[in-house]
């Protein structure tokens, strides 16, 4: 490092308050006699002053809270799935709904067209959890579950009947499972996080088929820069809550 280069490095640390008094003295006397370093230091300082805090736009917090409320049910099943017995069953049921919801399927016979179609994951799952998991449920370990006055949109039993099995195709590899915990995990990972403009062109990285009593529903999933972009065949596309690594891990 040349002498001036060294002083430039010190100028940067000076702006961050990282110099001891001796270094500071040495820098300042150099800046006084070296116009080039002085100029570079002034530029650094100007940048530093320019990079200030801008207030978040109006309504930002409200927007976040709206999205967070919608996302809240999505994070529950996986944590529940770690439990055993009843908690795990509840998780599986909730996740079945979430998977259906994630696939954008309207629960036509029970609830008619979904009013909140743009946020598929938010319907079904949350109501089910609240419906069948009172706050004092004995072995439900998750502190998350609270009694709530929300009206259940679908019942647990109708939900349980929905997804019997899941088939995942990744390239040439096809796997099939009826494991509720596994389905729950997939559902959690694939549930709606935010809307996507459209599905990508080309072959999806995964094709996930859920067997339901009414037939089957197919979810196309792409790994887009590590994020999961899902599409349900109707043109509805969304970014999933989980990422591609999580999905790969769940599938192994």
């Amino acid at each position: 490092m040349s002498r001036c280069e060294n002083f430039l490095e010190m100028s940067s640390r000076y702006l961050d308050g990282d110099l001891n008094p001796d270094e500071e003295q040495s820098l300042l006397s150099h800046l006084a006699e070296c116009p080039d370093c002085r100029r570079a230091y002034e530029a650094m300082r100007a940048v530093s002053l320019e990079l200030d805090v801008t207030d978040a736009p109006e309504g930002f917090a409200a927007g976040v809270m709206g999205a967070v409320r919608a996302a809240a049910p999505g994070r529950r099943p996986r944590r529940l799935a770690a439990g055993r017995g009843r908690a795990a069953r509840i998780a599986a049921l909730a996740a079945c709904c979430a998977l259906i919801a994630a696939a954008g399927l309207k629960l036509a016979s029970e609830s008619g067209p979904a009013a909140n179609e743009s946020e598929p994951a938010s319907f079904g799952a949350v109501s089910v959890e609240r419906d069948i998991a009172p706050a004092n449920a004995g072995d439900v370990v998750d502190r998350d579950i609270t009694g709530d006055d929300a009206e259940p949109a679908v019942s647990a039993s109708s939900c349980a009947a929905k997804v019997d099995a899941v088939t995942v195709q990744e390239g040439e590899v096809v796997s099939h499972s009826r494991d509720g915990g596994y389905i729950a995990e997939l559902a959690e990972i694939l549930s709606w996080s935010r809307a996507a403009e459209s599905a990508p062109q080309g072959e999806p990285d995964w094709v996930i088929t859920a067997e339901v009593d009414a037939g089957e529903l197919v979810l196309n999933v792409w790994d887009e820069q590590g994020e999961l972009l899902c599409e349900d065949g109707s043109g509805e596309a969304w970014y999933a809550l989980g990422d591609a690594d999580e999905l790969r891990e769940a599938l192994t």
Partner: peptide, 17 residues
Amino acid sequence: NIPGPGASNAPKGGTGV
């Protein structure tokens, strides 16, 4: 776009080092 030698404002808060 070279900022001229302006008033010598104190640097931003230190890093606590």
